[in-house]
């Protein structure tokens, strides 16, 4: 069985949707973070791909392109001990609080 990313030739009746979405701030930031980490040699393309390929099939298919990147980024950074899951959890709460009080 090929991995969920190894999709060439999989049967589908789907037409090709040629509309483009507008990039949002977090997508730019996700891409740019990977770029900056690559520049610092803290992460490479192969690791990013491996992290994406490790996403369970249902999640892989349900996620948007940069959601997959983001998930891989978290996998690789926590695995390397650069960040911890708890740190990220805490920071998310902090950001939510800040956005709440700003709005």
């Amino acid at each position: 069985m090929p991995g969920v990313h190894d999709r060439g030739g999989w049967p589908t009746d789907e037409m090709i949707d040629r509309s483009d979405h507008i990039w949002t701030d977090w997508e730019y930031k996700t891409h740019a973070l990977v770029g900056a980490l690559r520049f610092r040699e803290l992460m490479n393309t192969d690791e990013l791909r491996r992290g994406i390929e490790a996403i369970p099939s249902e999640d892989y298919e349900a996620s948007s392109y940069y959601e997959r990147w983001s998930r891989s980024l978290e996998t690789i950074l926590t695995e390397k001990g650069v960040l911890s899951t708890e740190e990220i959890d805490t920071k998310v709460k902090e950001l939510e609080g800040r956005w709440e009080s700003d709005s």
Binding site: N44, D46, E47, R49, R50, K80
Partner: peptide
């Protein structure tokens, strides 16, 4: 090119 099968896991490729 570097071997991705090793580089993907922190190896030197």
């Amino acid at each position: 090119f570097f071997n991705p099968e090793s580089r993907a896991y922190g190896g030197d490729g």
